[in-house]
Amino acid sequence: MGADIAFWIFAVIAVIAALGVVAQRNLFRAALLLVLSFFAVAGIYGSLSADFMAVAQVLVYMGAISVLIIFGVMLTKDVQRGNSFNRAWPSALVVCAALMGLLVFVFIDTDWNTDMVQTGATIAEDKPTTSAIADAIFDKDAGFLLPLEIGAALILAAVIGAIALVKDK
């Protein structure tokens, strides 16, 4: 009940903010709306009882990625005018509307088979997910240790690459 209300509120905020990101001409305001959208998505994670994901979303997206993006906006000075659409927007609009219709249709029409699982009566239990995620990732047999290491290497490569790209000659 509470989670449902939260879902509706955050879903509406997320969609409106995402539309704002696309429609807003002022790039800085678009970035702020993007932050709002990230926040709403964090709320959605909360309503999915994914507490760790919600916090990770706030930490990484709102704290790091949005700051990076705003830095990018500031360093490239086309803030006021530079977020217009290109010539292909009508066709893109048609394609995206069609895709959205298709996605929504598929999502609604598919039988997700949730009932069968729900009869196992496991869904109502809301437990803290943090240690469970740690178990899922670091488990020796079924875990994601290799992807984790690859992710770490990816981040390192990204950091070095970013420094190498932007460094003054």
């Binding site: 009940m1 989670a3 209300i5 909360g46 309503s47 437990k127 997910t129």
Partner: peptide
């Protein structure tokens, strides 16, 4: 509690 709305629940 996980989050406040679950608390509500």
């Amino acid at each position: 509690p996980l989050a406040s709305w679950q608390l509500w629940d």
